[in-house]
């Protein structure tokens, strides 16, 4: 019931040395990742490889450690043990400037979009350019309007404030912000949660389109199975802080894993029991 087909065993030789940069090599490699909050063990030895320019979706119920996993990968949380290798570089212990340099490789779309409500839409999108990279404001505004167009939003939106937008529109702006600096790795934290089914489909399509345009590696966490089928090249399932299955999307329905089967069909009965505490 542990590692599935394809994923874990397919580590490209040489990836750890950071020499290979072509399509198909390992971009992000996680080994033995552990994280606890007080007595609660959230990640209990996660092993996961993400291929360059592929789209990996991590599925799992609430409270199984999905969010903590991607927050560890991007460096918002520091793991207790284990290793995270990105482009051949061990990143767990990076601090200060080295951490800031690594952060430039990342873009992230947050669950609630996490737009800065004191700033207009265009400045939200251009934020990483202006403050992270020192691009002049006028030039950054042009890029922002361009990115907004990429996610299907007209230039008039640029001067509105986030509070004036609907949830789906905020997600689009969040997506435009995540891709504004052309990151190599984009993380999506439950991108369709709280959206109606049509808007969810629109956001999924935009994610696939923009990730392809930017040429990035995408890691998404979600429990929306429709979304998984639209976004994923590969799927990994996390349960009780470990990856219990990892394989290509084509094999998701024939995983032979009772946990995966129960989850993707949304059955109440099966090996997965409800957790009361988060």
């Amino acid at each position: 019931m542990t590692d599935g087909k394809g994923g874990q065993g397919g580590k490209a030789p040489g990836a750890a040395e950071g020499v290979a940069t072509g399509e198909g090599d390992i971009h992000v490699s996680v080994r033995g990742l552990k994280k606890s909050f007080g007595p609660k063990v959230v990640l209990d030895g996660v092993d996961l490889d993400v291929k360059r320019r592929s789209s990996l979706v991590v599925i799992g119920g609430s409270g199984t450690g999905k969010s903590v996993l991607i927050k560890c990968i991007i460096g918002l949380l520091r793991p207790d043990a284990g290793s995270i290798v990105i482009d051949g570089e061990e990143t767990v212990h990076l601090k200060g400037r080295a951490r800031a340099r690594l952060m430039r490789k990342f873009g992230m779309l947050f669950q609630g979009a996490a737009l800065f409500d004191s700033l207009p839409v265009w400045e939200n999108v251009a934020f990483g350019l202006i403050h992270g990279q020192g691009v002049p404001r006028r030039q950054a505004r042009e890029v922002a309007i361009d990115r907004l167009a990429q996610v299907g939003m007209p230039p008039e939106v640029a001067d509105l404030y986030p509070a004036e937008l609907s949830g789906g529109m905020q997600k689009r702006v969040g997506l435009a912000r995540a891709i504004a600096t052309r990151p190599e790795i984009i993380l999506f934290d439950e991108p369709t949660t709280g959206l109606d089914p049509i808007m969810a489909a629109v956001i999924d399509e935009l994610i696939v389109k923009t990730v392809k345009e930017v040429g990035a590696t995408a890691i998404t966490i979600t429990h929306d199975m429709q979304s998984v089928r639209r976004i994923a090249d590969e799927v990994a399932m996390i349960y009780k802080g470990r990856i219990i299955w990892h394989g290509p999307i084509s094999q998701l329905d024939n995983s032979g894993n009772p946990y995966v089967d129960q989850f993707i069909h949304g059955r109440a009965d099966g090996p997965i029991k409800m957790q009361v505490r988060g």
Partner: peptide
Amino acid sequence: VTEQIDALTTLSVH
């Protein structure tokens, strides 16, 4: 609580 501080960090702003 709305993750805006995390968002700042991911945009390379301390």
